[in-house]
Design a protein around this nucleic acid. Structure first.
Length: 128
DNA sequence: AGCGTGACGAGTA
DNA sequence: ATACTCGCCACGC
């Protein structure tokens, strides 16, 4: 097969079948262990396809089928609109959090990316 | 075809 | 910590 399926490839026939790119993104999301997270950029790099925003788009559209709270922004800020639900997950899973400093009082804690970031087992390296 | 916008990221001030 | 710029790619107007 030499087909070049792009992320925007539509499939009007089987609406229950996700675009291949989306499927790959969700596949990676499911690999993230509880208590750890992966950034949008890391997922894109892991796949060696698309970019952070594309991963974000996929998660926005189809993230409900996977542990969406484990795919996060690189700065550790909780997903807007789902902060409390995500925060609950992090506390349950023991995901490293950074409490808001006094200056940032009123803000929710953010993820401690230094400790919570999961590299996928280093699978993204070794192919350039 | 241009332009704004987005579950982004990194750099700079 | 905040705000702003650029780069990136897909979408919708």
């Amino acid at each position: 097969m030499s087909e070049e399926s792009l992320p925007h490839d539509d499939r009007p026939e089987h609406s229950d079948a996700l675009p291949e790119y989306a499927e790959r993104v969700l596949e990676v999301a499911e690999l993230i262990p509880p208590g750890r997270v992966m950034t949008y950029g890391d997922v894109a790099e892991w796949l060696q396809e698309g970019g952070p925003r594309q991963v974000g788009r996929v998660m926005a559209l189809y993230g409900g089928a996977v542990p969406w709270w484990r795919v996060v922004r690189s700065d550790g800020v909780l997903l807007p609109g789902h902060e409390l639900r995500a925060l609950d997950r992090y506390r349950v899973e023991g995901t490293p959090l950074k409490e808001a400093s006094r200056a940032a009082e009123g803000h929710l804690p953010r993820l401690d990316m230094r400790r919570a970031r999961w590299d996928g087992g280093g699978r993204a390296e070794g192919h350039t």
